[in-house]
Amino acid sequence: MTKVVVYESVHQNGIDEMMNEIAVEFEEQIFPKITVETPRVPDKYWVVLHNGKVVGAVGVVVVQNEFGVLKKMMLKKEFRGKEFGLSKLLLETVIEWTKENQISKIYLGTMNQFKAAQTFYKKNGFREILENELPLNFLKNPLDKVFFVKDLNKLLIE
Rank of each mutant, 00 (worst) to 15 (best):
M1Q: 12
T2A: 13
V4Y: 03
V4G: 09
V4I: 15
V4D: 01
Y7C: 13
S9T: 13
N13C: 05
I15M: 02
E17A: 09
M19A: 06
N20V: 06
N20E: 12
E21G: 04
E21A: 09
F26P: 04
E27D: 12
I34E: 14
V36M: 10
E37T: 14
P39S: 05
R40H: 13
V41C: 12
V41G: 03
V41A: 07
P42V: 06
P42N: 06
D43M: 03
D43W: 04
D43I: 04
V47I: 05
V47G: 03
V48H: 00
V48R: 01
V48T: 03
V48P: 02
L49R: 07
L49Y: 05
N51E: 14
V54Y: 01
V54L: 02
V54K: 04
V55R: 14
V55W: 03
A57K: 00
V58G: 01
V60T: 09
V63S: 08
V63M: 12
F67Q: 02
F67M: 09
F67P: 06
F67G: 00
K71S: 06
K71C: 09
K71M: 10
M74H: 08
L75T: 09
K76E: 13
K76G: 11
F79E: 05
E83W: 01
E83Q: 11
E83N: 13
F84W: 11
G85I: 10
L86H: 02
L86N: 08
L86T: 07
S87V: 03
K88Y: 07
K88P: 09
L89T: 09
T93Y: 04
T93A: 07
V94A: 01
E96A: 09
E96Y: 03
E96N: 14
E96C: 03
K99P: 01
K99R: 14
Q102P: 01
S104V: 11
L108Q: 04
M111E: 13
Q113Y: 02
Q113R: 12
Q113S: 13
F114K: 03
K115F: 03
A116M: 02
F120Q: 06
Y121A: 05
Y121P: 02
Y121G: 00
K123C: 08
K123L: 04
G125E: 09
F126K: 06
F126C: 00
R127I: 08
L130W: 02
N132F: 11
N132G: 08
L134F: 07
P135E: 04
P135T: 05
L136T: 13
F138T: 04
F138W: 12
F138V: 06
N141T: 08
P142E: 10
L143A: 00
F148S: 00
N153Y: 02
N153H: 10
K154N: 12
L155R: 09
L156Y: 12
L156A: 14
I157Y: 11
I157L: 11
I157K: 14
E158V: 04
